[in-house]
Simulated scan of single mutants.
Amino acid sequence: MVTQFITGSGAADVAGTESQVADVARLAARGVTVGYGGRAVIDDLDVAIPPGVITTIIGPNGCGKSTLLRTLTRLLKPALGTVVLDGEDIAGLRTRDVAKKLGLLPQAPVAPEGLTVADLVARGRHPHQSWLRQWSSDDAEVVARALAMTGVSELADRPVDSLSGGQRQRVWISMTLAQGTDLLLLDEPTTYLDLAHAIDVLDLVDDLHESGCTVVMVLHDLNLATRYSDNLVVMREGSILAQGHPRDVITAELLYEAFGLHAQVVDDPVGDRPLIVPIGRTHVRSAS
């Protein structure tokens, strides 16, 4: 279990534990400030991604979730601070070497028209290609294994743009797996999916975690985030408000502080995680 980290007066109590987690993290941001057009979106932020678990970043719209994910993958360069990947400053690594260590699925990716599933997934092998090393039987085996792991082998010859939303997400995750990395970053992988397909994709993420992958996701659905995560990172206004296991982090007080959401937190009747019950102005059972 990951210890909860809370900003404010409680931060000093867990400073030693946070340092220990950062020491073993696959990926970490240290004092990172990132912005657009001179405006800081995340400011002096520290976060460590523990290995071998599913970490989900949650927070209200505009709080910096996707900005943080893009910074961790080096798509955005911080104005201040450092991102560390496997103990090295990511800014000093070659792009090809970063791609061999982590895979990113951005929001709503789009494939070229008519591209087949097999061809798209094969593009995941690009970081391993060079003029000295061309496509080989080993690459073909990696692609076949990635297709099988995501359950889309039978779709290999289908055009990507002919698939359903859930199938396309599985194919994009398959391409990420074909990179041969065990560190996956997924930016809102359930966007535009209905609930059944969203569960299907998150079950796949869970399977990948069980096979040894470290996963970092951004999700909007709070109950799906608590159900599928071992470690939550709660953001507000470009800072980390809390981090830890959902059982330790999710409280009615935190939900109001982070989201301005009135809610009750109860035990999930089918799992061992908290369940969030939002409270609106209507449709609330009266005390009588």
Rank of each mutant, 00 (worst) to 15 (best):
A22L: 02
T71L: 03
P78T: 07
L68D: 09
G16V: 02
G35C: 06
L75Q: 14
S19E: 15
G52L: 05
L76I: 04
L80K: 06
I42K: 05
R74W: 01
D13M: 12
L69Q: 07
S66Q: 04
V24D: 15
P50R: 11
A79H: 09
V14E: 02
P78K: 00
G38N: 08
I54L: 03
R70E: 09
G59S: 04
A28S: 14
G62V: 10
D44F: 00
G37L: 01
V14L: 03
G16K: 05
T7S: 14
G10L: 15
N61P: 06
G35K: 00
A28N: 06
L69W: 08
A11F: 14
T82F: 07
G38W: 12
A11C: 10
I58A: 09
T82E: 15
R74L: 09
V24F: 14
S9Y: 08
G38P: 11
A29W: 11
L75E: 14
V34I: 11
V24C: 09
Y36W: 06
T17W: 15
G31S: 00
D43N: 12
V41T: 00
A40N: 09
G37M: 03
V47T: 04
G38Q: 07
G81L: 07
A22S: 13
I58T: 13
R30T: 06
L80G: 00
T7C: 06
V24K: 12
I42M: 02
T55N: 11
D43M: 03
Q20N: 09
A48E: 08
T55S: 09
R30Y: 06
G62S: 11
A29C: 09
S9G: 07
V24N: 13
P78E: 10
L27C: 07
P60C: 15
K77S: 14
